[in-house]
């Protein structure tokens, strides 16, 4: 952080076009390569890897939306999976009972996530710190119980199963490669929208709240309204991610919005480095790979691996993957 803070002004003040231009070129090349890799993945990867990548994308969007709360606004939520689950149940229910097109289901999931976040968020954002953590846990657990008990709609503990394959314009996306591109597209839209929020003046105000809430209040910012708005936007992102999850998984169970999911996504954000959206994506990838890819083959020792990853990350990478990469704070500094 310090190193970056001293380096950045030097680059700016030098005003020399060359280093800055070269850096931009490097960034553009990196970005294009990354996008090409992401888009090209199903052409080279086998169906299982493609499906795992699809899950990573859904989980990454959830982590990105949580990062808006944790890293940007400074509100660590343990109950964020609740809105993820709300989105997943909404999209799943609409696909089963009405048979609507995939993108419409995603839109509905986004709206559902936002609405439930609005309905519950006003309670949560009044507190902060550990108490916010516990209040979101309580809200999440209550919604988890609703998913368990409201059997006529959610299917209870057996889950909402038999969700049909996603269709876009009447064409179904049963092939893992097509589904991956669909989810990638939706992920891209969600990611860019949240990035826009973070980089706007509204995002700057959220960071102000993160750094010094009393000061922001003294400056006349409606802090409560800002926090609630951030909570609702994060809920919308989680809802969209839930819609993507059900498109891939085709079953929703109460576990998808339980404490474990909430804790895992918080872990993903921390692994990535709270405050950097792309870091959250890497964190999500690590968590999903450990749990879904390596976990099942470890003779039941998946949780042990997860615990070790947890401890190592907290010690070795104080600012997450983004901190190690040394370019953390791009979003913050911008």
């Amino acid at each position: 952080m310090n190193a970056h803070a001293t380096v950045a002004p030097t680059v700016e003040s030098a005003g020399a076009a060359t280093p800055r231009g070269r850096r931009d070129i490097v960034r553009v090349v990196l970005l294009v390569t990354l996008v090409l890799c992401l888009v090209g993945l199903p052409l080279v990867a086998d169906p299982f890897a493609t499906t795992t990548a699809t899950r990573v994308l859904a989980f990454a969007l959830l982590a990105v939306s949580l990062d808006l709360l944790v890293g940007v606004t400074g509100l660590p939520s343990l109950g964020h999976a609740a809105y993820f689950g709300v989105g997943a149940y909404t999209a799943g229910w609409l696909s089963i009972h009405i048979g609507i097109d995939g993108p419409v289901a995603l839109l509905a999931a986004t709206l559902a996530g936002a609405s439930v976040a609005a309905a519950t968020g006003w309670l949560a954002v009044r507190s902060g710190g550990i108490f916010f953590l516990m209040l979101t846990l309580a809200i999440g657990e209550v919604l988890h119980q609703v998913a368990h008990s409201w059997r006529s709609v959610t299917g209870g503990s057996d889950g909402m199963y038999g969700v049909p394959a996603t269709t876009v314009g009447g064409v179904d996306l049963a092939n893992p490669g097509f589904l991956y591109w669909y989810v990638l597209g939706a992920f891209g839209v969600g990611y860019l929208l949240i990035r826009m929020v973070v980089r706007s003046s509204f995002g700057a105000a959220l960071r102000g709240i993160h750094d010094n809430e009393p000061r922001m209040r003294a400056l006349g910012y409606p802090v409560f309204g800002y926090k609630l708005a951030a909570f609702v936007i994060a809920g919308a992102g989680a809802g969209l991610a839930g819609g993507l999850l059900v498109a891939q998984q085709r079953i929703v169970t109460p576990d998808d919005l339980g404490f474990t999911t909430g804790a895992l996504v918080l872990l993903a954000v921390v692994i990535g480095g709270a405050g950097t959206l792309w870091g959250a994506c890497i964190g999500a990838a690590v968590v999903v790979l450990v749990r879904d890819y390596f976990g099942p083959a470890l003779d039941g020792h998946g949780p042990l691996l997860l615990g070790i990853v947890f401890v190592i990350v907290v010690y070795v990478m104080p600012r997450g993957v983004a901190g190690v990469a040394g370019i953390r704070g791009k979003e913050r500094a911008a």
Partner: peptide, 12 residues
């Protein structure tokens, strides 16, 4: 393969 406690691990 490890089914775990539920669909989150089992389906994967």
């Amino acid at each position: 393969a490890d089914e775990g406690e539920g669909p989150q691990t089992g389906v994967a």
